[in-house]
C-alpha cells in the first residue's frame, strides 16, 4: 500500500471548484454562495479537527479515551435521532428510547466485529474501533429515526383501528403488530437499497477510500462486504430495539394504548 500523500496545494486546487460554484451563484444570483462557502469551511475545519483528534487518540492508545470519544459520538447520534421527529414521547423517554436503541445496537455490532471478524490487537484498538463505531452509528441513526417516525405517526393515524382491536380483546402486541412490522420495513428500505446498488450503481465509500489509498480491489471489496453485513445488522438491531422500546412506552400492563405519552413537537 502506497497511499498518495495529498499536499496543501492539492487541496487548494480541489477547493477552486467550491469557489467556481460560489462565483456561478453570484453571477446568476442563485443566492447560495454564502451557505456554500460556510458549509465548505465548516467541513474543512471539522474534518481536519477530527483528523488531529484521532491522531492524538490513536497515539495515546487508552481504552478509556477511546470509549469517551465513542460516547460523545453516540450522544450526538441520540440527539440527531430525536431532533427531527414530528412527535415526541413525554419526559425523558424521547431521547431515552432513541439513545437506548442506538447505543445497544451499535455496541452489539461493534464488539461483535472487533472480537470476531476484525480482531485487532488489542481488540479495543482505537484505529479500528472508532471508524467502525462511526459507520455503524451513521446507519443506526437513520434506521432508528425512520422507525420512530413511522411508529409515532402511525400510532396516531391508526388510533381508531388499534383501539378497535384492543376493545375486541386483542393484546397490545396483536393490536400493534402490523404497525410495528411496517415501521421496521420502512426503516430498512434504505439499507436494502444500499446493498442492491453496491458495486452496480455506486462504489460504496469505504471501498472507494481504500482503492484511492492504494489497496487491492478484491481485498477492499471484502472489507466492504463485511462492513455492509455489519451495517445491516446494526440497522436491523436498531430498528427492532426502537420499535420494541416504543411499544413498551405507548402501551401499558393492562394492554391500553397510551397516546397521552406522545405529543406533537412544536411546529
Amino acid at each position: 500500500m502506497h497511499p498518495i500523500a495529498l499536499s496543501p496545494t492539492d487541496l487548494a486546487v480541489g477547493s477552486s471548484l467550491i469557489f467556481l460554484c460560489a462565483l456561478l451563484s453570484l453571477l446568476l444570483s442563485l443566492g447560495i454562495h454564502r451557505t456554500l462557502l460556510w458549509a465548505a469551511a465548516r467541513m474543512v475545519v471539522q474534518l481536519l479537527l477530527i483528523g488531529f483528534v484521532l491522531r492524538f487518540v490513536f497515539s495515546v492508545g487508552s481504552p478509556w479515551l477511546t470509549a469517551l470519544v465513542a460516547l460523545v459520538m453516540a450522544g450526538a447520534t441520540t440527539y440527531e435521532v430525536g431532533a427531527r421527529q414530528d412527535r415526541r414521547l413525554t419526559a425523558g423517554w424521547h431521547y431515552g428510547v432513541g439513545g437506548g436503541a442506538t447505543v445497544i445496537s451499535t455496541l452489539i455490532i461493534v464488539v461483535l466485529a472487533l472480537t470476531t471478524a476484525l480482531r485487532p490487537h488489542p481488540w479495543y484498538d482505537a484505529r479500528h474501533a472508532l471508524p467502525l463505531t462511526g459507520i455503524i452509528l451513521g446507519g443506526v441513526m437513520n434506521s432508528v429515526s425512520l422507525s420512530l417516525n413511522s411508529l409515532f405517526n402511525g400510532a396516531v393515524r391508526e388510533r381508531a383501528a388499534i383501539e378497535a382491536r384492543l376493545a375486541l380483546g386483542d393484546s397490545r402486541y396483536a393490536a400493534l403488530r402490523d404497525l410495528a412490522a411496517q415501521s421496521i420495513r420502512t426503516a430498512l428500505i434504505p439499507t436494502i437499497n444500499q446493498m442492491m446498488a453496491a458495486g452496480l450503481i455506486t462504489l460504496p465509500g469505504i471501498m472507494t477510500g481504500q482503492l484511492l489509498a492504494g489497496m487491492d480491489p478484491v481485498s477492499s471489496a471484502k472489507y466492504q462486504i463485511l462492513l455492509m453485513f455489519l451495517l445491516v445488522g446494526g440497522n436491523c438491531c436498531g430498528a427492532f430495539a426502537a420499535v420494541f422500546l416504543v411499544l413498551q412506552r405507548l402501551t401499558d400492563k393492562r394492554d391500553r394504548l397510551r397516546l397521552d405519552r406522545l405529543h406533537s413537537a412544536r411546529a
Partner: peptide, 10 residues
C-alpha cells in the same frame, strides 16, 4: 366489550 361511536378498521 366496548363499542366506540366511530368504528376503527385495521
Amino acid at each position: 366489550m366496548y363499542l366506540a361511536a366511530e368504528s376503527g378498521w385495521w
